[in-house]
């Protein structure tokens, strides 16, 4: 469904020193330099997959999505999305995709979403009966109610994002590119958007490529993740495999019945934190079950749980290993 081979994007930008003298110099002589936003990216995503696309700020995630959706022309390499070359912006290709950008509103600010929906209905040649049914379905799935009849500027951020999703999906695309669709939303709205994406994927077998800084989005939606760093792919695989590869430990969260001295916990693993009666101990995966049984047998335990480390921590470890954290691209 989505295939890229050696996909690269290089931008030429100009550099200018600060201040009046810098502006004067730049006026007569501009210094240009190249930035490799995406380098040699090769990925394959099958129909119906939901794939998380992770990376620090400036890693090249959005640039990749823009190339996949035909907004940007690649500097080199090849892309095929649903059998089309995106940069050609073939009409059938554009009918099969949607790109939703959480930080950019696509609906007109001053008029209700329904007015924009009517234009989209005509642009995408949606028959009257289908339009009514699809709109009703989206309004129900996204719990939009009468919000579609209010000017967009009168809606909250979460409501606007729901309207954006409805507009983007009215033509029922087979491929969704979602760039930070839950950014800035409260937890309830985030959960609603996530549930909607899962529902849409199940109903229509849509392929979804999603970027998000909220790990809850990724863990709830994607089993497979692509990790990009400095424009290069550093991991492509199962989210669980990523966690296991970069985090050899599991976390034992123990609630004691009475206070336990920290030094008594050292023999079970690395004590990450202790707060009153609750302790977190990092234990190598291979021996976590044995250590849990040992703790239960030797200490006054009220409750015990074996947990995966937070995905945020794992991703941070990945970026630290690849040296991406804090580096501009």
């Amino acid at each position: 469904m989505i295939e890229t081979t050696g996909l690269s994007k290089r931008y030429t930008v100009y550099r200018k020193e600060a201040g009046f003298a810098g502006s004067l110099r730049a006026f007569f002589h501009r210094q240009h330099y190249d930035v490799d936003a995406v380098s040699d990216l090769t990925i394959r995503i099958g129909a119906g997959e939901i794939v998380g696309f992770l990376g620090p700020n400036g890693a090249g995630k959005t640039t990749t999505l823009k190339m996949l959706s035909g907004l940007l022309h690649p500097s080199s390499g090849s892309v095929s999305v649903a059998g089309h070359t995106p940069k050609e912006r073939n009409r059938e290709f554009l009918r099969s995709i949607a790109l939703v950008m959480g930080q950019k509103m696509q609906l007109h600010w001053d008029i209700p979403a329904t007015d924009s929906f009517l234009v989209l209905k005509t642009i995408y040649d949606i028959p009257d009966s289908d339009y009514r049914a699809r709109l009703d379905e989206l309004v129900t799935m996204l719990d939009l109610g009468d919000l579609v009849n209010r000017p967009i500027r009168r809606l909250s951020l979460g409501e606007r994002m729901k309207c954006e999703l409805a507009a983007a999906l009215l033509h029922r695309p087979r491929i969704l590119f979602l760039d930070e669709p839950t950014i800035g939303l409260d937890v309830t709205a985030q959960a609603a958007i996530r549930n909607f994406i899962i529902d849409y994927n199940r109903r229509y077998g849509a392929t979804v490529l999603i970027t998000s800084h909220y790990m809850a989005d990724v863990t709830a939606l994607a089993r497979r993740v692509l990790v990009i760093d400095l424009g290069r792919l550093v991991f492509d695989g199962d989210l669980q495999a990523l966690i296991e590869r970069h985090s050899p430990d599991k976390i034992l969260r123990v609630q004691f019945a009475e206070e336990v001295a920290p030094e008594r916990l050292a023999r079970f693993g690395t004590l990450r934190q202790i707060d009153g009666l609750v302790a977190e101990i990092a234990v190598p995966r291979a021996i976590v079950a044995r250590q849990a049984a040992d703790i239960l047998a030797s200490l006054p335990v009220a409750d015990i749980a074996i947990e995966e480390p937070a995905v945020e921590d794992v991703i941070r470890t990945v970026f630290r290993k690849t040296g991406a954290v804090g580096k501009p691209t």
Binding site: S69, L94, R95, I123
Partner: peptide
């Protein structure tokens, strides 16, 4: 400002 993107995504 990149506002053209929304229009480029449509088949028109």
């Amino acid at each position: 400002h990149g506002e053209l993107s929304a229009q480029l995504l449509r088949p028109l």
